[in-house]
Design a binder for these strands. Structure first.
Lengths: 192, 192
DNA sequence: CACGTTTTTGTGCGATCGCTTCAAAACGTC
DNA sequence: GACGTTTTGAAGCGATCGCACAAAAACGTG
């Protein structure tokens, strides 16, 4: 019928995601995007519309990969406290492992774009609530197993863990003391 | 001796701070800066060097005003737990009060610039450690007063509170449920 | 009130921004 | 293999970017 695409759309979105993730929305130029994706400008704009829509696609791609991975990690069998710890420790180690990585893409989007763009805010909220629900499940599981006190609302506990988690991922930007960050994890989890 | 300045340097830095604070570094143009400060481009560049240095000045200005205020708030007399709560609740209310406000400037700087610019990283770290020290003092005070268990290292507890605090200020970007955020405050403080 | 010094004002530099255009190229279909 | 359709590649659009420059203006000093 017509000329077929030479590139894989998902690969292009992933490449764009990595650019936005590391540099942020504003600091990523269309030139960066064409370079990283390997697409010409017309292919890129013909396929994705404009920079903003590609950013949204990148966020959704992050959901499918990283955010999804996190819920899987939390839902794995074993003591709930171990799951929560593994989840938080992994985030710390990812953030500290490579100075080139830029932490959590969702966190970056929250700060840079969420309050000026309703669509981005909604997409970011989707990520956060998904993790929050996975946390609630894990907390409830811990309560049923007697790991945590059963008196508190699992949803409130989940949000508390979530706050500590995002706070930690922020602190990795200025702290390089891994042990200090791990102490925060222990302090947070022991309080449940 | 020479022609005197027509503008107040501190006022100009403050105006620039508000621009960077709300829009971020990249999204703030030199045009924005000249408009908000009221200075012509050459006055601005003659005084501050370039955009990046003005951004650093804006961060330092934030330290003098907002960050300093926070340490004062924490050091006020009364129960330590009340000080910590007032500090966190105020942040939540500031973030939720006006959709025009952009949360915490230091937090924004951490995400947008800290890991690509060593000077900015150092400046941001100065803010964070200042608050951390104030927190440590407050926690130690609470331990002496018997409000908190004395067994834990005040420094570790301070970092835990700090994580929850920054996590909260992030969640205000996507949550508008004030009560849920206040529950996190209570959960965090009751765990000490 | 001329002089030296610094700031201000106005203009605009070269580069880059996000994005568009257009013709050539690459398919499936007949 | 001509046709219709879509993608690709190359070039470049107007606008804006961060910043610089030259001349005029505003002071303290002699």
């Amino acid at each position: 019928m017509a000329r077929p695409r030479k590139f894989d759309e998902t690969r292009a979105v992933t490449a764009a995601m990595n650019a936005f993730w590391r540099q942020g929305y504003e600091a990523t130029s269309t030139r960066d995007l064409t370079d990283r994706t390997g697409l010409g400008p017309s292919s890129l704009y013909n396929t994705f519309g404009d920079k903003r829509q590609l950013y949204l696609r990148a966020l959704r791609r992050y959901y499918e990969t990283n955010t999804g991975e996190q819920t899987v990690l939390l839902a794995e069998p074993g003591p709930a406290k171990d799951r929560l710890r593994a989840w938080m420790v992994q985030a710390i180690d990812v953030d500290l492992s490579d100075p080139e990585t830029a932490g959590c893409f969702v966190l970056n989007a929250m700060v840079e774009k969420a309050d000026q763009d309703p669509d981005i805010k909604q997409e970011v909220r989707r990520h956060v609530t998904t993790i929050e629900h996975a946390l609630r499940e894990t907390v409830a599981r811990g309560q049923r197993a007697g790991e945590f006190g059963p008196e508190r609302d699992p949803a409130a506990v989940a949000r508390q863990v979530l706050s500590a988690y995002y706070g930690l991922r922020l602190l990795t930007r200025v702290y390089d003391d891994r042990q200090a960050l791990l102490d925060v994890v222990d302090g947070t989890l022991n309080a449940l």
